[in-house]
Design a binder for these strands. Structure first.
Lengths: 107, 107
DNA sequence: TCGACACATTCATATATTCGTATATTCTCA
DNA sequence: TGAGAATATACGAATATATGAATGTGTCGA
């Protein structure tokens, strides 16, 4: 059991394991945005948003580019979006499964 | 912004965002195992293992089957393994990137 | 029904996360 | 250089998560 490998793995997952940060991913999936634009579209207060962006940047999930006094963030690796979408599929299939399992006859 | 969607998303990620639970996924990726077998192969103490398995089961990440007095666990959806592997790739690429970026000349 | 094995749950404690408020920093333009 | 806009950081309180120890539950065989 390669403990370090699984630790790194879970560290990356931890970075994604928060509703605000998922919203950020969702906001950035179609391209880069400035912090202000993200605050606008997600409704997350600026300070809190910056905090989340800082942890995402620290873990290499997002990259930044400065333009004047705005900072633009983007997702560092398109595979993160693929992973995001896979999670969505798992979620959907799991919900469907639960509906099917919850005996349709109400018996 | 569909808050509920992102909450469910992050809940599923939270379930994966722990080193022990990643080890469990790693142990189960080639097929079902009993709790005892997992305890053996991962080195996680039985009580703690059961706790993690309980949360994974509650979130629908694993399914169980009883045989005599053993309980066998398996991963509920193969897409979870795909997601696991994607995360691995992101991790590797991110490490490579950091090595490249860490100026080779030491300048 | 009893004893033993495999697994699950509870509880208390230690640690980590989250988020608001206040404050810094960085940059632009006059 | 100074005001103001955009973003970042520090700090602390509330909350969540992880874990070991102890105990409970379900199953089998005698």
């Amino acid at each position: 059991m390669d403990r370090d490998f699984f630790c790194m793995h879970s560290d990356l997952c931890k970075t994604l394991a928060n509703d605000k940060r998922q919203m950020i991913l969702g906001a950035l999936r179609d391209g880069e945005l400035s912090v202000g634009e993200m605050a606008q579209s997600t409704g997350i207060p600026q300070a809190n948003l910056s905090q989340h962006l800082a942890t995402m940047r620290a873990r290499g999930v997002v990259l930044t580019r400065r333009d004047g006094h705005r900072v633009y963030y983007r997702i560092s690796n398109p595979k993160l979006i693929q992973a995001f979408d896979l999670i969505t599929e798992v979620m959907r299939e799991s919900m469907d499964e639960r509906l099917r399992t919850a005996d349709p006859d109400g018996a």
